[in-house]
Design a binder for these strands. Structure first.
Lengths: 366, 366
DNA sequence: GGGCTTGCCGAAACCGGTTTCGTAATCAAT
DNA sequence: ATTGATTACGAAACCGGTTTCGGCAAGCCC
């Protein structure tokens, strides 16, 4: 009866697979197969191995497994840093969500950044090539997303934060922004608004298409006609939001309420309203989407549909892990709703469209 | 003459060390030693190996190296997510700095998060144990930093973002916040202010001690006496800043200017000033520190000393890499200055201390 | 010219795992 | 009882590197 050491009570040096094997009197191959659910291991042995491994605190070294399997239980996230503010406020929560869910299954997160789109692709390549990541979370899905194309080609698993028109081999998680936009319109309509404008985000993002559709759906549900002159977009920053608002206010028959696809842009509406001498929340109503903290500090606080970034990170991580483990992407598509966070930026219209036009003209917006 | 393949023109599969060795007609041991500067390789061979490896696009697989060497060219960063807003605005830039500098030397970044301090320590342990990180960047240095103690004990390299009293085996990078506080006082004094208050951050952070000293140094340089009743602290959020400001305004002989250690707190001063009917920038002057974007949107824009987080990330990454490579920590200590970003929140005093006291009393602050 | 270094490299062990292959033992079928 | 298939595991190769060890050849000294 050889090999009957009982090396329990592991000190600081790592417990290796051979330690577990020795303690059980089997070979490390057996331990490995038992832990990885190979079919040629008896149920009895599997249980014995499981128990002892657990008791000894054995955790396989991901990088050692990786040299044979090619996988190291690592998620990848490449952030694009040249885009306007966008992900800033959420980033911390988003990362917390991802790493929280990942570490629960003993996975980790590798983060990289890139400036331009080209650099983005080469960064993905590099991470794949150096096996620093088994798959990727792709935030900010574009309608035509080259990251997606590349990873499909390389046959590297990924999950989108956002949806996409061509769903071939795509897993995703997304917040139903279109529902929020729809609800925003209905809420404004119930306040009594009939002329409602829409300021969208950049058209390159897939979410912009969806939110626009949601706005239209809301208008239809409310029995209101969409005035195409009150639809504008490409507003991803506070400044762009201010300019877009000024354009709407300067129109012949300005809106009494505006729905924004992006909070940052909605904050610009505050600046524009101040210039025109209009009070946000009464003279002009604003509802937006994102739930950034600055919205809560604004006066009046911004009414917005807030997104739980931490939950998004968690669910994305879990989906990606299942995807990497080989599950069918078609079955890995989840969505959630944004949550209305009522502020003081919307209410019954205190002014008519004509009166607003007058104020705007007086402020020299026309 | 065996082994004379010339497997140039690598296709998609990785170039392995054995490919390089075969191409040169040497063993992989020789290639490895040549690339890692072993002394027992002739200069001629070393150059030949270098050139061929480069030409073939060979990059060693970090995880494969790691199983023998224990190191995988990976930096670690553990973010604490339960603390108020603090790092939010900078995080994206900070990460961009770290990963930019890291990837330039073919290193990567592993990010983890933790809620409490205890979880923080176990997360560090886990990353070290699973060899997911060769060393750590520790942001937000505390005066008594347990992370530091743990890593010292485990003999894992780290670099502080911030300085610390006990510099034993510590490398660091820091912004000289005390200099900024000093300059802030001098600027206010040159405006003509003589009663200047100070609102510090949380005392647990080492930077708070330093910034307080900087404030005192500035007062001394300006020939002004420090009134201890005008010194307060623990203001890390907008709300806390508002409350601290109210306390100062409610004092018998309130300040005409306040220096803040943290931008977020300074924004709270805007709220307090509004409540008291005081105009920031004239009735009451404010200068702060951090350079968060919200400061620029405030009205008037916040005068602040801004920190280049991207540069901080870059330098921290470079220092940590050198530290991991074995350089002496004593030689790895760098600092930089914050840069004054003038806004409209400071200027010559438009009111006396008595007048301010009157306004505060009228607003019911007393 | 013989012994002793020294420089330089090949051979092989090693790191901590996974996976293939072969085979002893068990079981079912003839 | 013999055969054939199955089960369950040991032995060993393997992944892509690093590091130790040993030995050949050239250089040095006397």
């Amino acid at each position: 009866m050889p090999n009957t050491k009982t090396a329990i009570l592991s000190t600081s040096p790592r417990v290796r697979i051979s330690d577990v094997a020795d303690a059980l009197g089997v070979t490390k191959g057996t331990v490995s197969r038992a832990l990885n659910d190979y079919p040629d291991i008896s149920e009895t042995t599997r249980r014995r191995v499981r128990r002892t491994a657990e008791a000894m605190g054995y955790r396989p070294l991901a990088q050692a497994q990786g040299i044979r399997t090619g996988r190291t239980r690592t998620l990848g996230l490449v952030l694009q840093t040249d885009i306007e503010g966008a992900q800033r406020p959420f980033l911390s929560d988003f990362l917390a969500g991802i790493t929280g869910a990942a570490s629960a299954e003993f996975w980790t997160l590798t983060v990289a950044t890139s400036a331009g789109g080209g650099e983005m692709l080469s960064t993905l390549q590099r991470l794949v090539n150096e096996r620093k990541s088994d798959g990727f979370i792709l935030p900010r899905t574009l309608s035509e997303d080259e990251r997606m194309k590349l990873l499909r080609e390389l046959e590297v698993p990924f999950v989108l934060y956002g949806r996409v028109a061509d769903p071939d081999r795509c897993a995703w998680f997304d917040i139903l922004g279109e529902e929020a936009m729809r609800d925003a319109v209905l809420r404004l309509a119930s306040h009594g608004h009939r002329r409602i404008g829409f300021v969208n985000g950049a058209a390159a993002y897939n979410f912009s298409q969806l939110r626009k559709e949601g706005f239209r759906a809301g208008m239809a549900d409310a029995g209101l006609a969409v005035d195409e002159t009150l639809m504008t977009g490409e507003a991803m920053s506070r400044n762009a939001g201010r300019e877009a608002t000024c354009r709407l206010l300067a129109s012949a028959d300005p809106p009494t309420a505006i729905v924004f696809a992006v909070d940052l842009a909605a904050l610009g509406a505050y600046d524009a309203a101040r210039s025109a001498g209009l009070a946000v929340g009464s003279d002009i109503s604003v509802i937006s989407y994102d739930g950034i903290p600055e919205g809560g500090w604004a006066r009046p606080p911004l009414t917005t549909f807030s997104v739980d970034s931490r939950m998004a990170g968690e669910r994305l991580a879990r989906i990606l892990i299942r995807r990497i483990r080989g599950e069918d992407p078609e079955s890995l598509r989840e969505t959630a709703l944004a949550e209305l966070q009522p502020g003081g930026s919307d209410g019954p219209p205190a002014m008519t469209s004509e009166e607003i036009a007058g104020r705007a003209a007086a402020a020299g917006m026309r």
